[in-house]
Nucleic acid binder design. Structure first.
Lengths: 163, 163
DNA sequence: ATAAATCTGATTGTTTTAGTCAAGTATTTT
DNA sequence: AAAATACTTGACTAAAACAATCAGATTTAT
């Protein structure tokens, strides 16, 4: 799971749907584009992923647009970020390298592992609904215990080359 | 503050110095290069920043190398990451944009702000010494209260373009 | 039919990052 | 003094990731 502005836009878009999707009417990308200052074509690309990730439902044709596929309280920030980043990234021997050479974990392995879990616990604790309800104090959340965390956040884009 | 593999390498290097710098002898980049599988030239670049950031002291000439500039217990992961990323990034009107258009904060402003603080609290709570002492449980740290946090972690690389 | 929307693929451009190269300077050893 | 060691610096290159676009196809309400 990577933290990029793509994820940020994805969250903005989902939040926008929750804030402006009134009375059973779907929200159009054009409307999101205007309110969130994201280009229509880029939104199209984002919603490709969001739809594939099961976060939104679409209605085609005039009067169409997008709904949230489930209640805002059941969509976490982690869900959104994961959805928009998913496309590629599916190579074999993925975690074979990960900075640790030839089987032995590097001295900092536990550190990055813990950091990833720490970040994920936050993103997993915040729902779209919480972002929309301005009362919630995002700085003092109840986080799930570490044991329950499976997915983690990665730091690296590239892998170290030797000498 | 950005989370990239550059920061990861920086931490690996600093940890290496702490682990292998025995009996008042400085540690050479060549030694770090071999042990941590980082190219010498890349280490040179990294240590330029680490030195500028006041984290290491250098000794030139044969028998030279690098020391930690202060005890490992007083160097945090946040310190290291900040040091290696610092170079550019000093433009004017920096946080003028930040995803929020024309003065009004966007709907997700508080979210990303809270996330940044959350990440920073972790990185600021972990010292190099803690990483080296394998006994410490990095998953259950005592973090500083949010009020004390000033620096934050950014998510975005680029800024949204409008329509 | 037409227009409003989503959908799909392929592709482009830009930035950032990772990494290299070459030429220095300082210091110690011999 | 010479030579070797090691840091120092600046400039440069390559490649990946990311942001963004485009052209066209499909669906559906009116």
């Amino acid at each position: 799971m990577r933290l990029t502005s793509k994820g940020r836009y994805g969250v903005s878009a989902i939040v926008d749907i929750n804030n402006h999707g009134k009375e059973g009417k779907p929200v159009t990308l054009a409307a999101i584009s205007e309110r969130q200052f994201i280009s229509l074509s880029y939104l199209e690309q984002l919603f490709r992923s969001l739809r594939a990730g099961g976060l939104v439902r679409s209605v085609r044709g005039p009067g169409g647009g997008y709904f949230l596929a489930r209640p805002a309280s059941e969509i976490t920030i982690a869900n959104v970020i994961q959805a928009v980043n998913e496309p590629i990234r599916t190579t074999l021997c993925e975690n074979a390298v990960r900075g640790c050479h030839r089987g032995k974990r590097c001295d900092t392995h536990e550190l990055w592992d813990a950091m990833g879990k720490h970040i994920y616990r936050f993103l997993d604790a915040v729902s779209i609904e919480m972002v929309c309800q301005k009362e919630v104090d995002l700085n003092n959340l109840e986080l799930k215990p570490v044991e329950d965390i499976v997915t983690e956040v990665r730091m690296e884009q590239k892998i170290a080359k030797v000498s």
